[in-house]
C-alpha cells in the first residue's frame, strides 16, 4: 500500500515534458495554480481541463499511476467538500431537517473539488517529470534573485531536494519495519484510535533511528566530498533555455491570458 504513494515522486520515462527546463516547469506549475484560483466560470475549468489533459498526455506518465497518488488526499478533499456544501449561505436547494444545501454551496463544493484535484495533479505532474536534481537547479536559478535579500536560496533548494529524495527511501524502510514487527505479531490495522496510535510506536522508533542515521551518513558523505554550500559552486550541466523552452513560456502565458479573458467576458 505504501508503494502506491506517488506524491512528490519522479517517474522515469522519456517525454517532451521530462526534457523541458525545470524553470519552465516551475513557472508553469505556478501559472496553472493561479489559473485555477482565478477561475470563476465553467468555461475557465473547461480550458484548464483540456490544458491538463494535454500535459498529462505529453508527459508519458500512465494516468492510473498519477491517480493512485490521489488516494492519500481523498479524505481531506471530502472534508472540504462537505464543509462547502453545508455551510455556504444562499438560495436553498434541498432542506433535510437541520441540513440545508444551497445552490451556491453546491457550486462551491464542486469548484473546490475540481480545484484541489487539479492542484494536486498539476504539482504531481511537475515532480513526476523532474528529477530532484533538476528541481533543485531550477529552484536555485529561478529564485536566485532572492539572494539579494540574503536568503539562503541554494541551501533551501538542496534541503528540499534531499527531502524529496528521501521520501521513497523512508517509505521502503517503513515497509520493512512494518513487516519485521508484523512477523512478531504486531497489528497495525485493527482496534480503536488509541490502540492504533500505540501500535505506531514499534514502527516510529526504528524509523526515526534509521532516519537520523541516514541523515548523519549523508552529511558525512557530503563533507567527505568537500561540499560547503552554494558559494563558488559551478555546475557540470548549467541550465540553458532551448527553443522549445521559450515556446513553452509563450504557451503558458497564452493559457493564463485565455483563462483571465474567459473569466471576464465569457457568459457562462
Amino acid at each position: 500500500m505504501l508503494r502506491e504513494l506517488t506524491l512528490g515522486q519522479y517517474y522515469q520515462t522519456e517525454s517532451r515534458l521530462h526534457r523541458l527546463d525545470p524553470r519552465v516547469k516551475l513557472f508553469g506549475t505556478i501559472i496553472f495554480l493561479i489559473s485555477l484560483f482565478i477561475s470563476q466560470k465553467p468555461s475557465c475549468y473547461v480550458v484548464a481541463t483540456v490544458f491538463l489533459i494535454c500535459l498529462i498526455r505529453l508527459s508519458n506518465v500512465p494516468f492510473g499511476y498519477m491517480v493512485r497518488g490521489m488516494k492519500a488526499i481523498v479524505f481531506i478533499m471530502m472534508i472540504t467538500v462537505v464543509f462547502n456544501l453545508l455551510f455556504t449561505p444562499g438560495e436553498t436547494l434541498v432542506k433535510l431537517g437541520v441540513i440545508t444545501i444551497t445552490i451556491q454551496g453546491l457550486k462551491n463544493a464542486i469548484y473546490t473539488a475540481i480545484r484541489l484535484t487539479y492542484l494536486i495533479l498539476g504539482s504531481t505532474l511537475m515532480t513526476l517529470t523532474t528529477t530532484p536534481n533538476d528541481l533543485t537547479d531550477g529552484l536555485e536559478r529561478g529564485l536566485g534573485f532572492l539572494k539579494i535579500f540574503k536568503l539562503p536560496v541554494h541551501e533551501t533548494a538542496t534541503m528540499m531536494s534531499i527531502a524529496l529524495r528521501f521520501i521513497p527511501i523512508l517509505l521502503e524502510e517503513t515497509d520493512k519495519i512494518m513487516k519485521a514487527q508484523q512477523a512478531r505479531g504486531a497489528d497495525f490495522e485493527s482496534g480503536g484510535i488509541i490502540k492504533r496510535a500505540r501500535a505506531m510506536v514499534p514502527l516510529l522508533v526504528p524509523l526515526f533511528v534509521s532516519a537520523f542515521r541516514r541523515a548523519n551518513d549523508l552529511a558525512l558523505a557530503m563533507e567527505a566530498r568537500c561540499y560547503n554550500g552554494g558559494e563558488g559552486r559551478t555546475k557540470m550541466k548549467p541550465l540553458v533555455y532551448k527553443a522549445w523552452d521559450k515556446r513553452a513560456y509563450v504557451i503558458l502565458i497564452g493559457y493564463l491570458v485565455l483563462v483571465v479573458l474567459l473569466g471576464i467576458f465569457s457568459p457562462v
Binding site: K176, K179, A180, Q182, A183, P206, V209, R213
Partner: peptide
C-alpha cells in the same frame, strides 16, 4: 497471527525491529 507465532521470521537488519 497464530501462523506468525508458529513460523518465526527474523529479518536481515535487527535495526528494523528493536524499539
Amino acid at each position: 497471527k497464530g501462523l506468525r507465532g508458529k513460523v518465526g521470521l527474523v529479518f536481515q537488519y535487527p535495526e528494523h525491529q528493536l524499539f
